[in-house]
Design a protein around this nucleic acid. Sequence first.
RNA 1: GGGGGUGUAGCGCAACUGGUUAGCGCACCAGAUUGUCGAUCUGGAUGUUGCGGGUUCGAAUCCCGUCACCCUCGCCA
Length: 585
Amino acid sequence: MMRTHTCGDLRPADAGRKATLCGWVATKRDHGGVLFVDLRDRYGLAQATFRAEQNAALYETARHLPLEGVVAVTGTVEARPADKVNPKMATGGVELNAASLEALNDCKPMPFEIGDGEVANELRLQHRFLDLRRPRMQHNLLKRHALTLALRKAFDAERFVEIETPILYKATPEGAREYLVPSRVHRGMFYALPQSPQVFKQLCMVAGLDRYFQIARCFRDEDLRADRQPEFTQVDVEMSFVTPEDVFRVIEGVLKVAWKEVLGVDLPTPFPQVPYEEVMLKYGSDKPDRRYGMEIRDVTEMVKSTSFKVFTEAPIVRGLAAPGGAAAFSRKHIDELTALCAAAGAKGLAWMKYTPEGMQGGIEKFIQEPLRAQLVAKLGAKPGDLLCFIADKKEVVEKTLGMLRLELAKRLALKPSKEWDLHWVVDFPLFLQSEGRLVSGHHPFTQVHPEDFALLDTDPTRVRGLQYDLVMNGTELGGGTIRIHRADVQAKVFGILGLTPEEAQSKFGFLLDALAHGAPPHGGIALGLDRLCALLLGESDIREVIAFPKTHKASCLMTGSPAQASEKQVRELGIVFQAPPRAGA
RNA sequence: GGGGGUGUAGCGCAACUGGUUAGCGCACCAGAUUGUCGAUCUGGAUGUUGCGGGUUCGAAUCCCGUCACCCUCGCCA
């Protein structure tokens, strides 16, 4: 070993021992005759002391060490006198009195400092190996490790088996756009990188493995966001002989362990379950942030009595009361909110201020008593609130009020009622209307809610699926389903979706075949590990918890990927471009 | 694919309505300094104002194009 201790190890109890530390030169403080060098590694910071009177040549060498150069320092551990102790450092009670120094590597001038300062995103990604040396990323990556380790231990304790599934998979007919990989052996054929290990985990259930999990890399060739990367990691889970409740209990238990291990926090379980219809009504979103109150209420029937045509002629009217909004928002602010509602698809924003003197402004003149009192009661409004209403088709009302609610929470700087709000959204509709036909809400293998089998024939749009999402603080952390495991039910669902048996066979052949060979009832869930980790650490961008992420346009600024392939490689694959790639591209 | 934002020294930023030699802090280099710990003090060096074009006596500043990064809608388990 080149070192006897790490830079975070030494304590006063080590005084008198000889030690060698290896690390990066973090800072130097030269006092003319005595020089302090802080050595850094991932375990901590340690102060090495060089004295001219002790060894003039060594002192002179150490003075000229470059910052971020790599050195090994050997010397004697000395306890610091009481007035020289640095209580801010874990190793602040000691210092290493240097007797010798080996420069292990030089360091060119740094593009940015290794510290907590703001550095442009582009620069960080270009020199990611240096960015990862900084405290924020060191902390985040170590916490991510703690998280995945906790998850693995918790799943293992529940008798889950971690199984790896292929990265080179096959293009699937549905879902996100996929990354394709051309085959050299099978010219003209392609693999696809998996959007998720969905099919394989079901096959594991057919194989009798009973409880599967995987920390799985997934790929989607879609446009990116702060919470989306082209490759990301899912905590993928599948279980046999289970109901949704069984899946919930396992995930709640596993997350409870994770919170404890990573944050030292006791996460309350079980998580509340909220039906899809309820979240869409109250929050206008299927991933609601429930920590801000301000729930949406339906007032369609209540406002039928007004002379306000916007209200009486719309299919749906809903509203909310923004706490303190009457005083906080000027006419100009309300105009801005109205513009946002218009951008979301609504025709406008109907509003009035509920002041201590009564209703003011906006649609006030259309609304008389007793309707005013009824609306105040229905929305739970208090004097000082701004009452907001949207009248339109149901989908528009939900979307607009959902957006408005989040915007109001932001503009009014509403305090969240708690730090962590985790809940299950359940009872999703199995089918959605799309251009006059029915399509799967999630995927065509989602099991029918046991109470709704009869509706399959009479009113399929009211059929609920055994589908669930896990939502945390307004972010979708994951989702899953119980799968259909019987051929007759599957055939029925395919029929409702307008798929003939032949089409179903050609699209999903081997899966259907597997299900027909003694597939157990099974279901599971997949959690977005990057999002989970970011939320746990208070990061709003998942790139802060990914070691080597890509930019908004899916390129890696450090390695320069994607890049052109050599002509030979392309030729071997039998690929011919329609037009030559642009020079310099 | 649509909309928006940003781009000035190695880094973070400044430069009023177009106006003389584009500034400040940190880092860097040299010197001073025997107890600092985000050390301090003195001095020094550093610019294709992303790139290309245009308007103008004169452009970091205005216009057009382009590139990169970011946000957002569409898209996306």
